[in-house]
Amino acid sequence: MGGPGSSPCASCKLLRRRCAKDCIFAPYFPPDDPHKFAIVHKVFGASNVSKMLQELPVHQRADAVNSLVFEANARVRDPVYGCVGAISYLQNQVSQLQMQLAVAQAEILCIQMQNEPTLQSHHQVLELDQDHKALLLNNNNINNCNTNNNNNNFGYAMSSGQFNSNFASPSSIMQMQMQMQMQDPLKQESLWT
């Protein structure tokens, strides 16, 4: 790819210039996919994209190009709100889910407090010592084997903080890091101030 005799990359083709061997666009904008560069060029401009790529280590440029293409598509699809529309929608979803979760957790606390007087009404239970009570609880667990298996999954989800392995992508660590990096700034920063 690049150099005299071979076809120029999508960017050099669009900009009608020679595609040098060290063209910064060539590895990421193949000539068979001209739309990719066209849309990035329209939203960000070729010189800006070139500068942004040069500021990055080589091994991260492919990811940067993919995210620039994604954002350019979003901007062209919605010229007013672009990616901000999606971010705003998701932030609203997070807020609503957090409120619903708080309500559900409060409800379960109420149920747990109500359950205690019910146990006291059985004088057989009162006659048992602490060990027998523990044994009774264990027997209840034995009677719910399937539920117990699910307990383990739930415990894992709780212990892992926010992520469950069922949702994790192969780059789960990267995702968690991104979330840690992104969440606080997004919460602190008000979109319109």
Partner: peptide
């Protein structure tokens, strides 16, 4: 702030958070 992932990174992180919250809500 994030020259590699930009808004796509923010969207991805929020989607992860939504999924985690939905799973926790379902469990509770």
């Amino acid at each position: 702030r994030d020259p590699v992932y930009g808004c796509m990174g923010a969207i991805s992180a929020l989607q992860q958070q939504v999924q985690a919250l939905q799973a926790e809500l379902t469990a509770v």
